[in-house]
Design a protein around this nucleic acid. Structure first.
Length: 328
DNA sequence: GCGACAG
DNA sequence: ATCTTGTCGC
């Protein structure tokens, strides 16, 4: 049910984006960053490039009018020579592949309700419901979650573990409507994960999610979002650091360091696995303390990632590859 | 110029 | 995460 609620908010994100691109007037240019700001967050600039690359209606949606922040040409799916030609046809000249008189033809005055702004507000609001404290429910079973993609078709897997062994796993296939944008991951993956969890008859006592918990600029990474929406204990396990400060470097001799955001400890970096160079980043999702989150992950760490997450990753990737093979 | 940007 | 049309801050 919540899956539909989130999808309703994000289903038309792409269409809204292409409408923004259509606002760029003939004979003018805009930039990836300006479009990202019109979406509501400059962090989306790389996603803007990706969406333009997937532009289903070139010319009609004039993605050739989008260039880089300093007036450099940028990329083009149909070949850069085509982009140069389309710009020349509109009287836009290039010198050394830089837009001539860039600042006087730059268009940034988009009319937009900035959809990412609303999603941020949603995150701030839900973040107030997060409890990063121990819940004292017994942790007999722990589930790991991960999603593998083929384009926007996602294969989401839950792998359930107890006493060091996998008990069962479930995988579903679905479509992600929202593109990936840093700090907005949950709006892409939550609907798939919620559909997956509706399929299972016994919910594990704890879920480990591939992504962050409260170690997030607005305190609501994927693990926290999922934990709050379902009101279940969750832990975030990320492979790189989205935000926060390492208290100290981690080494094989000193493999654990707190990660702080402002003056609070939001989680830990852990160097696990025998030849691992980069740590993983563990934070409470919901109904667990940073310390118990760390302890629980460590208990399941044979390699770099805790087994439930590692196995979910292996299984979802395998399913994706099997189906990709069948389709050609 | 290099590295950071959850997946 | 794939498969490749970025931006910002140091």
């Amino acid at each position: 049910m919540t899956a539909e609620k989130i999808n309703k908010r994000v289903r038309y994100f792409r269409d809204e984006f292409y409408e923004l691109v259509q606002q760029i007037p003939y004979g003018r240019v805009s930039t990836y960053g300006a479009l990202a700001r019109a979406l509501g967050d400059v962090r989306a600039s790389r996603t803007v490039g990706k969406l333009l690359n997937e532009n289903p209606r070139p010319i009609e949606v004039p993605c050739h009018r989008v260039v880089m922040s300093q007036g450099e040409l940028g990329g083009f799916g149909l070949g850069l020579e085509m982009k140069r030609e389309l710009l020349a046809n509109e009287g836009i000249s290039l010198v050394n592949d830089m837009v001539f008189d860039f600042h006087s033809i730059l268009y940034t005055d988009f009319e937009s309700d900035e959809p990412l702004k609303f999603l941020r507000e949603e995150q701030r609001s839900l973040a107030r419901c997060v409890r990063a404290e121990d819940d004292h429910t017994p942790l007999e079973t722990v589930g790991g979650l991960d999603v593998a993609y083929h384009g926007d078709t996602g294969y989401a897997t839950l792998s359930v573990w107890s006493e060091g062994k996998e008990l069962r796993s479930t995988t579903i296939r679905g479509v992600a409507h929202m593109p990936y944008i840093p700090t907005y991951l949950s709006f892409r993956e939550m609907p798939l994960l919620l559909e997956l969890l509706e399929e299972v008859d016994r919910m594990p006592d704890m879920l480990m999610v591939d992504g962050n918990g409260i170690m997030h600029p607005r305190g609501l990474g994927l693990a926290s979002h999922l934990g709050v929406v379902l009101d279940i204990p969750t832990i975030g396990v990320a492979k790189s650091m989205l935000c926060g400060r390492l208290e100290h470097e981690v080494t094989p001799h000193d493999p654990v360091s707190p990660v702080t955001l402002g003056d609070t400890t939001v989680g830990y970096a852990l160097l696990s696995g025998s030849r691992t160079k980069k740590p993983i980043y563990i934070s409470p999702g919901h109904r667990v303390s940073p310390e118990l989150a760390l302890e629980t992950v460590m208990r399941y760490c044979s390699y770099k990632l805790p087994e439930p997450v590692r196995q979910a990753h292996i299984t979802s990737t395998k399913k994706r590859n099997e189906e990709r093979c069948l389709n050609g």
